[in-house]
Amino acid sequence: MPIIELTDVFKRYRVGEQEIVALNGINLSIDQGEYAAIIGPSGSGKSTLMHLLGCLDTPTSGRVLIQGNDVSTADANRLSEMRNSHIGFVFQSFNLLPKLSVLQNVELPMIYAGVSSRERRERALASIERVGLADRAGNTPLQLSGGQMQRVAIARALVNSPRIIFADEPTGNLDSKTGAAILALFRELSQQGSTIVLVTHDDKIAAQTPRRIEIKDGRIVQDFFNPDADLPGTARPLTPQPTPTS
């Protein structure tokens, strides 16, 4: 059953007089438990695509279904709720709040979900333990290394038990060794059943995921099962893409 389903999605921006087509007709379906990489050069529209999938934005036209919920026409509050309960984000620059402790950072999504403080603490600690930072819960992010910060961010993304985790260049600010460790963590999470969508411009990273979705000029140009990845995946034909507008 697809957890993400995009049908004929277009996204256009207007910058002054000029119209920019960021997504030029996207059909995409990602199943529950899949581990996919969206790869493309900068300016290809992959960030825009991730914003749509992550309920940060709505398409100009077309339909976006997340867990069966149509979010293409949802208002800002509905999008916030969707992000809160269905989606976890991991960013390239970690985006932790520097004044809060690790524990408080991880608690943040639950605050907006209205979880009681005791449960918040329990779940946050469990999540921190899951990424292997149990002894750092009281530290502030600035006292941590880059890899540790990204683990905290992952713990935060996991804490509301979201259906999907979006990682935007999660290893971009890390050295290759720490990056590999973070990717290993994603793989582990994937094996435990999380749906993970990774956005990257790095072929080596995309090569480690079972599914590889390549995007260029706002269109999906390749979508295939990766036989090299040592993870279970589903081979699929390229979903028929709609006709571009220009």
Partner: peptide, 16 residues
Amino acid sequence: IREIGVRRAVGAKGRD
């Protein structure tokens, strides 16, 4: 601004 962005990303509504 960035902090506000993070809070929004993890589910804070404009109202929050």
